[in-house]
Amino acid sequence: MSKSVLLKSSIAKKYWMALTGLFLCLFLVGHLLGNLQLFIAGEEGRRAFNEYAYFMQHNPFIKVMSYVTYLSILFHAIDGIMLAVQNKKARPVQYAMNNAASNSSSVARKMAVLGTIILLFIVTHMVNFWAKMHFGGLKLHKYELVTPGQMGEQKQMVYYTHTPSVNPIPDVPQIEVKNELDLYIAKSNLKVAEGYKDLHSNVVAFFSGKETNGVEGNKLALVAVILYTLSMAVLSFHLMHGFSSAFQSLGIRHKRYTPSIELIGKIFAIVVPALFAIIPIYLFVK
């Protein structure tokens, strides 16, 4: 098998589109399951989400999968752009009158446009959340600990750490944060615990617009929610054609199974983006 066939042939390009596309569908499911934790209320939900975010950043298996995801997105986008450019060239003179609606859905014909919008969304989405998680800019997860004492109730801000059973680490000048997450006795090499990045409060502040655990509320929260929802609508259209189209590209077509694949594709295309979109709307109106 020559390299040119693997990358240059029109059909091989479609295999790559299908394989990366289907992998990204799996990624969407994983991402959605994580996001749904934002529905868990109060401190419990905050802990669950931040622990999950830590796991996603540090687990070796997830790390490998994340690189596969980045590569898939890149390959899907680059391959898609290459296909779109070739397809444009294949018809240099356009029809004066083209009744394309009579033979195909506009969604199927506009996959490249929809894909470009999704790519723009992914970039802004990664700037808003992924970059903060990976390159700093997030506060550590701290909560108010109430302890009964002889002088009445005592309130203190403490770090939420990986080993919550030992003495809680208070947010005092004697405790110093190093390497983003590690809590040290100030001016010493003594590490006492490891905290969590408070991605949860960042997300809630971003979409609710309200100050959350010391994170300033996003003044443009309404715009963010609207753009996010619109992006999910675009994703829905892209999946509406893309899901079943991937199977066709891979040659998986059968009188008995194809109707089910198409139905599952339609359900997937509606349910997954809808669930994604409900989360910021819920955070905004909550």
Partner: peptide
């Protein structure tokens, strides 16, 4: 398929038209 590509036809996007 190679000849089809060389002739300058576009790629299939499964629109079904």
């Amino acid at each position: 398929v190679r000849t089809m590509d060389e002739e300058g036809f576009g790629n299939c996007t499964n629109t079904g038209a």
